[in-house]
Write a protein that binds this DNA or RNA. Structure first.
Lengths: 222, 222
DNA sequence: ACTCGCAAAATTATCTATAATTTTGGAATC
DNA sequence: GATTCCAAAATTATAGATAATTTTGCGAGT
């Protein structure tokens, strides 16, 4: 029974698995067994294999030749690596998008920022945050660059959800507003500089857990 | 009959197909038919499909849902896009590699530059050039970043081979030497600046063809 | 002569089955 | 009691077969 037309089976499977990996529903290092996934989706292992390869290309899974594929593990070093790659590529994209930014786009980005500030949970915040970033870089019209940025956002979201597992407190995003202010007066370089700092700002700081205690964990912004 | 152990069939197939695409042996837009490839490699279509997906992830092929996969086309805009992404990411990598660069590595990079200057054909030059770039960025020890750079190099090589199809004239690479000179005295920022210009320098200029005439084509350096 | 449409061929996508490899559990041994 | 070895189970990887879709070629009609 086709749940949705015009989306191939491997794409569908990889998308759903990606959601689970990003949200932390499947833990890092967990094995992805093709038969189990196949029966769950009522499919054979062939499309499942292709879905696995897709996840591997996105950096969400790693495959050892004859031993199957696991959810990719990640550590603080990789968090920093992804953040720096995002900073470099989003700055590049913003520089090219700058001349094509319209008032309407910036208004929509501001709306996304407001939505982020009023988010009830991390998930909603991440969605709004990603919308903001995507809005201001999309007009660069560089498909390969945008695809790479999307993959990095997926990795960032993973880290984000793993840090704030249970408690969440929304706060106003001053960086986003500063970026928009600079863009509105045509100062693309200034906006890019703020964006670079904003994305790259990844520090290790204590975060309250649901139990009330504190643990050392990384904080992500951007 | 395993030709080589410890390399999976899909990896092997995608590697060989990638070589053909990069070298221009298979033209942009050409269809890749899974059955034909399968019989050529004495395999079934399952590994071939996975090889195709790999190529798609590298940006060397594009797949339309029920219509098969074609060799990715490319135009001047994409050449520029890849060059700018390379500039951004290689600069990032070099900045991190800087502190870990040793005299031995720089010597090896200089040897690669010499090999490039003495290359008899484009193919040899490209190989030496890639060795140079890879040598100076590898010590950054950021696997995701290095993998992304590798894919971009593959795309660059494609453009390069398509431009200089037949005639080739080696010239000394002053940029590489300037980068090395800066690195030897610890001026990583200066080296990064030269690298950015070096990679990004992609202009449209007439190139002599084998027939002796000139045609408008892009020139790639880096 | 050109266009439209239908049928045949080719091709893709998926499923089922088989082979090869790895993991797992337990028993025998040190 | 811990360790090593072997066999059974599980799992991955590939092959062969089937269904569905697209492309192609030919003929009829205008």
């Amino acid at each position: 029974m086709p749940t949705e037309t015009s989306e191939t089976l491997p794409v569908r499977i990889s998308r759903i698995l990606a959601e689970r990996i990003i949200s932390g529903q499947i833990e890092p290092g967990a094995r992805l067994r093709q038969d189990h996934v196949a029966v769950e989706f009522g499919a054979s292992h062939v499309p499942v294999r292709e879905a696995f390869q897709r996840l591997e290309a996105q950096g969400l899974a790693v495959s050892e030749p004859r031993r199957g594929v696991r959810v990719a593990a990640f550590d603080l070093r990789e968090v920093r690596e992804v953040a720096e790659m995002r900073a470099a590529l989003e700055v590049l994209a913003l520089r090219h998008a700058g001349p094509h930014l319209t008032r309407a786009i910036l208004d929509e980005a501001e709306e996304a920022t407001r939505a982020g500030d009023n988010s009830p949970d991390v998930r909603a915040w991440e969605e709004a945050n990603r919308r903001f970033h995507r809005l201001i870089v999309t007009p660069c019209a560089m498909p390969r660059l945008l695809a790479a940025i999307d993959d990095l956002h997926a990795a960032s979201a993973r880290f984000l959800f793993s840090a704030w597992r249970s408690d969440w407190e929304a706060r106003t995003d001053h960086d986003h507003r500063a970026i928009l202010a600079a863009l509105r007066i045509g100062q693309v370089d200034e906006a890019a500089a703020i964006l670079a700092r904003h994305v790259q700002w990844i520090g290790s700081k204590p975060v309250r857990t649901a139990a009330g205690g504190t643990r050392d964990v990384f904080a992500i912004q951007g």
